[in-house]
Computed example of a mutant assay.
Amino acid sequence: MTSAADIVPLHVLGTDVDVRVTGQEPEELARVLRERWHLALREGTGPAAGTTAPPLVVEAGVVPEDRPEPWERRDTVVHDRDLPRLLQRLTQSITHAVITARAGELLMLHAAGLADPLTGATAAFVAPGNTGKTTLCRALGPGRAYVSDETVGIGRDGTVVPYLKPLSTRRPDWSGTKDEQPPGTAGLTAPVAAPWLAGVVVLRREVGHPGPPRVEQLDVLDAVLALTPESSGFMRTEGPLRWLADVLERTGGAQRVVYAEAASLEPVAAEILGRGDPW
């Protein structure tokens, strides 16, 4: 029977997840997971406040070298002999599980999210994978509330559901495996004020882009075309195009921003996080 010591209880994207720790030295792996997922830990093994569904269960364990384990993102069992690869795969499996669980309930954008710590005003910076979302959180997040470097979930009432995962950072010896780093090591903290969506930015990073970021206001059609490929569970949502159009209308439409360095996006972030609540 699994004991409480074998479980790392998380609350991510509004969903309870129990990570069941197995394999070699499970106590050490549980310690590492609690360190990396420190902003997402829920107290005890009971449900988080407002949660009634039973927790999703994902298993993780370090295994001997002579037991290679196949893995896909949809798998809920993640075994690996290499700890950094195990941590990355576990993050991806948890992400897949909670996105699947919330499909149809949230409008989910593949985005970095930062919020004003006092008002909860949140900016969603939408971009494909490996194009600078985590770097943006590290550069602009200290002093603000961290919402996600992966998925920003939006309710129909404009509330934003945080996904306080570890920061997935490229390693200096990049070989396909990222480091899963505790957000606190980058000065990031969880929201205190309830987050709500204040604005949407479509990012395009261009190395060598001269001068300040180039900001372009998108009309509704162009915004929808830019955002739908960077969404999750979109077609499992009732009236997704109407929902997205309403989000854009209430938040002043989406901006496309071309930039070179994340720090140069400070004025864009400050303007959005200074907005009043349109919801």
Rank of each mutant, 00 (worst) to 15 (best):
A4E: 15
D6E: 12
I7Y: 08
L10S: 05
H11E: 07
V12Q: 13
L13N: 03
D16M: 04
V17M: 04
D18Q: 06
R20M: 06
G23D: 06
E25Q: 15
A30Q: 07
R31L: 12
R34C: 15
R36Y: 00
R36M: 04
L39S: 12
L41D: 03
L41S: 02
G46S: 07
G46Y: 05
G46L: 06
A49K: 00
V57M: 05
V58N: 05
V58P: 06
E59P: 05
G61E: 15
G61H: 15
V62I: 10
V63A: 08
P64D: 11
P70T: 04
R73I: 03
R73D: 13
D82R: 02
L83T: 07
R85Y: 10
L86V: 02
R89V: 01
R89M: 03
Q92M: 09
S93H: 07
S93V: 08
T95C: 11
T95Y: 09
H96M: 10
V98M: 00
T100G: 14
T100N: 12
R102W: 01
E105P: 00
E105L: 01
L107A: 02
H110F: 12
H110E: 09
A112C: 06
L114P: 05
L118V: 14
A121G: 11
A123F: 00
A124E: 09
F125M: 14
G129V: 05
N130H: 15
T131I: 12
G132Q: 10
C137K: 00
C137Q: 00
A139I: 11
G143C: 08
G143N: 10
A145L: 14
Y146C: 09
S148L: 08
D149L: 13
D149F: 11
D149P: 13
T151Q: 07
V152I: 05
I154E: 02
G155R: 11
V160K: 10
Y163L: 14
K165V: 13
L167D: 13
S175Q: 09
D179M: 11
Q181R: 15
G184M: 07
T189M: 06
A190M: 02
A193E: 03
A194D: 09
A194T: 14
W196P: 09
W196E: 07
A198S: 10
V200E: 02
R204P: 08
V207E: 08
E216K: 07
L221P: 01
A223H: 01
A226Q: 06
L227Q: 01
T228P: 01
G233L: 14
F234I: 00
M235H: 03
M235E: 01
T237A: 07
E238N: 05
E238R: 12
D246E: 13
E249L: 01
E249M: 00
R250Y: 04
T251S: 02
G252A: 04
G252Y: 03
V257T: 14
A260H: 15
A262N: 05
L265C: 08
P267A: 12
D277S: 05
P278C: 09
